[in-house]
Design a protein around this nucleic acid. Structure first.
Lengths: 236, 236
DNA sequence: CCAAAAGTGTTGGTCGTACACCCATGC
DNA sequence: GCATGGGTGTACGACCAACACTTTTGG
């Protein structure tokens, strides 16, 4: 489509930051680039925006091409416009933040194993760190373009919003039957720190129970060793 | 520069939302359009982004062309990309939020009176409302392009950030000598509701005094009738 | 001119809510 | 071992009350 970019033009692309929580770890979907620039390097999935689609439409189109998912959470993250962010020419990127349950993403990972990878991400005072499934560390500076910055921006946004929006529930494999322990695991993975389960339970309940969005089901889960957890249902 | 836009190209512009607090009211700088489309209608100041500048650079350039201000607060707000938002062709807009003290903005308003106007804005459950200096109501739907939506987005962002960033202090005419009453007026204008002065004082103090960013001066202000207020200094 | 009233700034207390931290109990 | 619930101390906002300092008002 854009084999060579013209010099006197400005192009607009979308990159999507697909996040999930797997085994209590915050993870991110990376795609290996096949063409230059940055051939062979890891990058966020991206696409150019067509003349007949909005940035959000383009992001949803790209997501749909990769995942058989409807109704995934998707919101605009930030627009990156540095003049030299793409060696091909002048390309700005409207980045989107996407949240997907791991059970859905797993299906994709099984198929297109070579091109995609789901990396653990962590961020503390020392900055970003990426770890693949076999414990190998990935240098954030090796990512294509300015995608390291995009990822940092996304994690900070996610952490800022998880306490006063329902974005945490979007990570749940089944919002119609989950335990508060699972939900707490999501919050801990996103925030990068352990939480007090007693306070967590009270906070979630006081925020959502009175509105009727969160209701307790009559079932109990038998997932682990200990006492079966009560299962809840959340209306997204 | 862009007398006619080509059909097969995508253009990128910047619109800036310049906010201030005047006489306890949140106000917004609007510019009257002279050329089509929307000739004669009110709009946010905007410009196209050049090939050699980032969106932020373009926004700062536009701001500098209008106001003799350095160091104004400026941050990216949102990127609006609807396909039909501009009748001339495909133009997306990276909107920026700017905060300017009224004393600075007043100087501009005195000069270029005809083209610019400083409107009071309010937003509640019924949506946005705009009022000019003589009490005339301005219909938000009469604004050019999708600028009504941009304004709403900006106010919501501002309200969300005022409690955990220093953005409120950017409205102060003189951050080196202000009373807590003045600061409270800013917060009330932004939030659109009155605050308890006792709690406000405690909250501001506990947040900033220990860090040393907010210090009490030895002066006292003599601005009004009542007891002179203690003056404070904030390090931006 | 002086005293009282009104207006604004400043400090303090109470009460309920929510969170941090710890502990007890059920399965 | 994990889920669930309770209890205590602390921090903060809503609401209220009192006091400090100045201008305005009314004799």
């Amino acid at each position: 489509m854009h084999g060579a970019l013209e010099e006197d033009r400005l192009y607009v692309a979308t990159d999507i930051l697909i996040l999930t929580v797997r085994d209590g770890r915050l993870c991110l979907l990376l795609s290996r680039r096949v063409d230059p620039p940055y051939a062979g390097r890891w990058a966020l999935p991206g696409t150019f925006i067509g003349l007949d689609e909005s940035a959000e439409t383009a992001a949803k189109r790209l997501l749909a091409e990769m995942l058989p998912i409807q109704r995934a959470f998707l919101e605009q993250l930030f627009t990156f416009t540095d003049v030299n962010r793409d060696p091909r020419g002048r390309v700005i990127s409207v980045a989107y933040l996407v949240v997907v349950p791991w059970e859905r993403l797993k299906e994709l990972m099984a198929e297109k194993d070579a091109r995609f990878r789901c990396c653990q991400i962590a961020m503390d005072g020392n900055g970003l760190s990426l770890t693949d499934d076999w414990g190998g560390a990935l240098i954030p500076g090796d990512l294509a373009f300015d995608h390291g910055r995009i990822i940092e921006t996304g994690i900070l946004r996610l952490r800022g919003k998880i306490d006063y929006t329902d974005i945490g529930f979007r990570f749940l494999n089944d919002p119609r039957a989950f335990s508060l322990g699972e939900l707490q695991t999501v919050f801990e993975a996103v925030l990068g720190e352990p939480l007090d389960s007693s306070n967590f339970r009270r906070a979630i309940m006081s925020r959502y129970e009175k509105t009727g969005r969160l209701t307790q089901t009559d079932q109990a889960g038998r997932r682990g060793r200990g006492r079966p957890a009560a299962l809840y249902r959340f209306n997204l």
